[in-house]
Amino acid sequence: MINRLKVLRAERGWSQQELASKLDVSRQSVNAIETGRYDPSLPLAFKIADVFDLAIEEIFQRDQVNN
């Protein structure tokens, strides 16, 4: 799974720590998701979508290789 988290965060001028605070997770969690080292659960993905006021599929997309 790939995501646009880093781009979306940069567009809003948020640091990883600020986004982590909004999601009530650790900064390491945001970093792991952004770098593709961790795929969030569906509840966390919904929470991320809510924070950015976007649909989940506008943030997370299927990896082309695994499509």
Binding site: V25, S26, Q28, S29, I33, Y38, P40, S41
Partner: peptide
């Protein structure tokens, strides 16, 4: 631990 990444 409620942070799922940290828990994992």
């Amino acid at each position: 631990q409620k942070d799922e990444f940290q828990r994992m």
